[in-house]
């Protein structure tokens, strides 16, 4: 067994702890990435979210390892031995250390503010080649297209920047497609917006993410992301159906 030094300020302690923190950071980072699978991956806006999330995970792994390894090491090495009735070493603090662990986090905050700002810009940016209005009410959704098409499901062409306008008629709701990433509240009395460029063809669920009463849990609708020609075909068919309905009225 390694013989540990008695004095708490001996270099040797810090070398050992440093090595352990390094190992623990790597192990913890991979563990956290495994248990925190970010499901947002099927839109242009989801990418920066996942990237920033994983960056955070590594920082978290490091800080967690730093505190916990130091703590566990202290608990083992500085535990009171039997028949030792002495008190702990007498030091009341260290201004240099306090300044260091104030300034370094401050720098990290500035860095993360900057990164966070850029990521936010990427996540909220997008074009409006496709436009659709989603209206939420207790407890369902309808979707209005600029050409007058009204639908119970949302259909979007893949890889086209879409601008989704959001409107609530009764209480606050929130529009969320997990696979796309960002969500946006719908607030009575105002219109809110969400930019999404879906990158994967398929069927997803739109869910309400803001508690809105009795059937909130079941306030869901379908969104289909389809190739562009299919989208145009669907739109034409919808238009035709609606015209027939209008005519027969």
């Amino acid at each position: 067994m390694l013989k540990l030094p008695q004095s708490s300020t001996d270099r040797k302690h810090f070398v050992i702890v440093g090595a352990l923190v390094f190992i623990a950071t790597i192990a913890l980072g991979f563990f956290l990435l495994a248990i925190l699978p970010v499901k947002a991956q099927h839109s242009v806006q989801a990418e920066p979210i996942r990237w920033l999330f994983q960056l955070h995970v590594w920082l978290i792994a490091f800080l967690f390892a730093l505190v916990v390894v130091f703590m566990l090491y202290a608990l083992i090495v500085f535990r009171k031995r039997k028949d030792d009735d002495s008190e702990g070493e007498h030091f009341e603090g260290n201004a240099t250390l306090e300044v260091i662990w104030t300034v370094i986090p401050l720098i990290l905050v500035i860095v993360f503010s900057f990164i966070g700002f850029q990521t936010l810009r990427d996540v909220t940016r997008g074009g409006d080649e496709v436009q659709v209005e989603a209206v939420g009410f207790q407890w369902a959704w309808t979707f209005n297209y600029p050409n007058g098409v009204v639908s119970q499901e949302m259909v979007l062409p893949v890889n086209k920047p879409a601008l989704i306008s959001l409107r609530a008629t009764d209480v606050v709701h929130s529009f969320w497609v997990v696979e796309w990433g960002p969500k946006q509240d719908l607030v009575p009395g105002m219109t809110t917006h969400l930019h999404i460029t879906p990158t994967k063809v398929g069927e997803f669920q739109i869910v309400c993410a803001e508690l809105c009463g009795l059937s909130h849990w079941n306030m869901v609708a379908k969104v289909r992301v389809v190739p562009e020609d299919e989208y145009i075909a669907w739109m034409n068919q919808k238009l035709a159906e609606q015209n027939i309905q209008m005519a027969s009225r």
Partner: peptide
């Protein structure tokens, strides 16, 4: 996060070299 961090690190400093 900054003042919160100060607390954590100071706690570690308190444990370090004690008779726990």
């Amino acid at each position: 996060a900054v003042p919160t961090g100060v607390k954590f690190f100071s706690w570690l400093g308190t444990l370090w070299g004690g008779r726990l």
